[in-house]
Design a protein around this nucleic acid. Structure first.
Length: 489
RNA sequence: GGUCGGUUAACCGAGUGGUUAGGUAGCGGUCUGCAAAACCGUUUACGGCGGUUCGAAUCCGCCACCGACCUCCA
C-alpha cells in the first residue's frame, strides 16, 4: 500500500510517517462527548477532524476500526468528595432518569453529527456498558502495584508509577512541578499525593449512578473508560488516539499511565490532538458558558449570530483551518466560509455541464498530486482547499471559454473533485436533492422561455419584471451568452 | 507562578531562508440592454528590538501582547 501520510504525534512532538501496526488494519480511538447537554461548535472540531482522518485512511485503502466513546457515567464536577455527577445533576434538574438524560443527548449528538455529514464510527461504546472491563483494569493495576485502596476508593499511585515509567511525557509535565503547583482542593485526604487520581470512587448514599465492586458500591474514575474500551476493541497496542488538546492533561496522561501500569507497555502509537475553537479569542466550552450549540448555529437562534449557518458551512469553516491551529468564531468568518463553499459547489455543478474540447490547458494529474501532498502533510485541509480552488478557477474559465479541457481530462477532473470534495472532505451539496426539484425545473424552463421571448422582442420591461418577481420569490436569473440559468438564493 | 503554543495584509486562514497560498470583502477592467455570475488586474502582510546570512516574515536571542493546560471540558 502506498503510504505517505505524515501525522504530528503529540507524544514525540514531531511529524511522523504513519505506519499501521498491522497493515491493512488501522485502529483509531477518539474521545467522544460527555452526554449531558447539547453539542456545541467546539464538538464539531474533533468530529470533523477525525472524520477527515477516517475518510482519508479509508480512501487510502486501510481497513479502519474507528471507535469513539460515549461518556455516560458522568464525571465529578470537581476533584472533591462532595463533587456532583454531571449527568445526575442534569437528571434531577430535568426530572429525568440519568439514562434518559444520556439517551436524549446521545440522540441529539448523533443527529448533529449526521448533519455535519460525519461518518458513524465503527463502534460507539458507552462507559456504563463497560463497568466490568473497567473493574478488571483496576484489578490489573492493583496487582501490578500501582494503585491503592482507601475507604472503598481506589487511587492510582503516580509516584510509584513514576519510579519505573515517566509520568507526564505527553503533556510535558514534571512531577515535582505538579507537586508544587497543584491546587489544594477539599476532600483529597484519601490520596497519598494530590496528583494521584481515582480509579474507583465509593459512592455517597445519595449518589444514584453506582455499581458494585470488590472495594465498594461506587463508580469508575474519570480516565478509566477510555483505557478499558480502547483495549477491548483495538487491542493492548493500537495505532491512533485522538481528542481535543484540552484533554491532553490530565485525561490522556492518565490514560497512558493506566494502560502502561496494567499492561507494562504503552497502548497508543500516535497521539493526535485537535486545537480549540475560540470565541473572542477565548476557548469555547460548556463550562465557560460562551458556547453556541450546533442547533443554534443551524437555526441562527442565538444573540451573537447574525444569521443561520448550514451544517456544511460549519464543516467547511472547520476544514478551512488546520486542525492543530485555533480557529476563531465570528459571523464574518462564517459568512466567508458560506460564500467559499457556495463557490466550490457551483463549480462542481458547472463541471458536470462542461463540454470537452480536443486539448487541455491544465495538468490534472499534477493538481491531483498536489491535493494528496496536502493531505499527506498532517491532513492540511486548508492547503487542499486552496488547490481545489485552483481547480474551481479553471472550471469557471473553461465555462467562460478561456481555458480548455479534453475528454479524458474532464473525466479525471470530475473524479478528482468527487474524490476530494465529497469522499474525503465529506462536503455535500445542500441545495440539491429536494422532491419538487424536477417540477420546479420544468416550470423554470417555461418561465425562462417566456422571458427569452420578451428579450427577443426587446421587451425589457417584461423581461425585467419576470426577473424581479422571480428574485422576490427567491430565484435568481443569470443570463449567459446563450440562454439563461437560474438558482435558488 | 509552572509548562506549552500563538502574534501574517480589511476579515478568516496557509506557508516558507530568495518564487502569487486560498477564501471573503474592497477597488479597476472584460462580458452584459441593465443586473448577477464568471474571468483578468489590484490594495497598507508577516507584533517590537537586536543577531546570523549575499538574502529572514521564515533561523537565534530578548521584549511585548494573546491564549491553552495546570479542576470537568472537544
Amino acid at each position: 500500500m502506498q503510504n505517505k501520510l505524515v501525522l504530528y504525534n503529540s507524544l514525540s512532538k514531531k511529524k511522523e510517517l504513519f505506519t499501521p501496526l498491522r497493515e491493512p488494519f488501522v485502529g483509531l480511538y477518539v474521545c467522544g462527548p460527555t452526554v449531558y447537554s447539547n453539542a456545541h461548535l467546539g464538538h464539531a472540531r474533533p468530529a470533523v477532524t477525525f472524520d477527515l482522518l477516517y475518510r482519508y485512511l479509508t480512501h487510502t485503502g486501510y481497513k479502519v476500526r474507528y471507535v469513539r466513546n460515549i461518556t455516560d457515567v458522568g464525571h465529578l464536577e470537581n476533584d472533591a468528595d462532595e463533587g456532583e455527577d454531571k449527568i445526575e445533576k442534569k437528571a434531577r434538574f430535568e426530572h429525568l432518569e440519568p439514562m434518559e438524560v444520556v439517551q436524549k443527548y446521545m440522540n441529539t449528538f448523533a443527529a448533529n453529527m449526521e448533519q455535519l455529514n460525519t461518518l458513524h464510527p465503527s463502534i460507539e461504546p458507552r462507559a456504563s456498558g463497560h463497568i466490568i472491563e473497567q473493574l478488571e483494569l483496576i484489578n490489573e493495576i492493583i496487582q501490578n502495584g500501582y494503585a491503592y485502596e482507601v475507604n472503598g476508593s481506589v487511587y492510582f499511585d503516580v509516584l510509584k508509577y513514576n519510579e519505573k515509567y515517566k509520568y507526564g511525557k505527553l503533556s510535558g509535565r514534571i512531577l515535582e512541578d505538579l507537586q508544587s503547583n497543584t491546587r489544594s482542593l477539599e476532600g483529597q485526604d484519601e490520596k497519598r499525593n494530590s496528583f494521584d487520581f481515582a480509579l474507583w470512587k465509593k459512592a455517597s448514599p445519595e449518589h444514584i449512578m453506582k455499581w458494585p465492586s470488590p472495594w465498594s458500591v461506587g463508580f469508575p474514575g474519570w480516565h478509566l473508560e477510555c483505557s478499558a474500551m480502547s483495549v477491548k476493541y483495538l487491542g493492548e497496542v493500537f495505532d491512533i488516539h485522538g481528542g481535543g488538546m484540552d484533554l491532553q492533561f490530565p485525561h490522556h496522561e492518565c490514560e497512558i499511565a493506566q494502560s502502561t501500569a496494567a499492561h507494562g507497555r504503552e497502548s497508543v502509537r500516535y497521539w493526535l490532538h485537535n486545537n480549540m475553537i475560540t470565541i473572542n479569542g477565548q476557548k469555547m466550552a460548556r463550562s465557560l458558558g460562551n458556547f453556541i450549540t450546533l442547533d443554534q448555529l443551524f437555526s441562527g437562534d442565538h444573540p451573537v449570530l447574525k444569521q443561520a449557518y448550514s451544517p456544511m458551512t460549519i464543516r467547511f469553516f472547520v476544514l478551512q483551518a488546520h486542525y492543530r491551529s485555533t480557529v476563531d468564531f465570528s459571523n464574518e468568518a462564517l459568512q466567508a466560509s458560506e460564500k467559499g463553499l457556495q463557490k466550490l459547489m457551483k463549480a462542481v455543478e458547472a463541471l458536470n455541464k462542461i463540454k470537452p474540447s480536443n486539448s487541455s490547458t491544465l495538468d490534472i494529474e499534477k493538481l491531483k498530486a498536489k491535493c494528496y501532498e496536502a493531505l499527506d502533510d498532517d491532513l492540511n485541509s486548508p492547503i487542499l482547499l486552496s488547490h481545489l480552488f485552483e481547480g474551481v478557477k479553471f472550471i469557471n474559465s473553461v465555462t467562460d471559454g478561456s481555458e480548455k479541457i479534453d475528454s479524458p481530462g474532464l473525466e479525471s477532473l470530475k473524479e478528482l473533485f468527487n474524490t476530494f470534495v465529497f469522499e474525503i472532505l465529506g462536503l455535500k451539496d445542500e441545495t440539491s436533492g429536494k422532491n419538487d426539484e424536477k417540477l420546479t425545473g420544468e416550470l423554470m424552463k417555461i418561465i425562462i422561455g417566456l422571458r427569452q421571448d420578451a428579450k427577443n422582442n426587446k421587451d425589457w420591461p417584461a423581461s425585467d419584471k419576470i426577473r424581479n418577481e422571480l428574485k422576490n420569490a427567491g430565484i435568481v436569473i443569470k443570463d449567459l451568452k446563450d440562454g439563461a440559468e437560474w438558482e435558488k438564493e
